[in-house]
Amino acid sequence: MAGAVAYKDRQFLAVIGDEDSVTGLLLAGIGHVTDPPEAQRNFLVVDAKTENSTIEKAFQTFTQERNDIAVLLINQHIAERIRYIVDSYSEAFPAVLEIPSKDHPYDPEKDSVLKRVRRLFGE
């Protein structure tokens, strides 16, 4: 089946998050840097100074260009900054997962998937 090929070699997780979230997740051991040349990290640290275009670019890279990523974790407050892209993203692979960060508690109302869940059940 074609689907099997699509996610057979997806084995990494990617993160777009603030420094604390990224540090924590890297400590858990999800960090991966591809072999040079063209070394690519599978994580992006976003702070107040990071441009939205950088986040967008990273999001596109992780979701479309790289085919070894199974799950993309993104802090909810960062997803909020590129909400239009996150909401229009509807592929199954990689799965985009909005996670809470230390400074921003999790708000289920904003989650793009939960929003769909709510809409489906008419709540």
């Binding site: 997806r10 084995q11 997780l13 051991g29 960090g31 991966h32 840097v33 990290r41 994580f43 799950v71």
Partner: peptide
């Protein structure tokens, strides 16, 4: 961080 220790299948 160099190689992913935590992976998914």
């Amino acid at each position: 961080a160099k190689q992913a220790r935590f992976r998914v299948r």
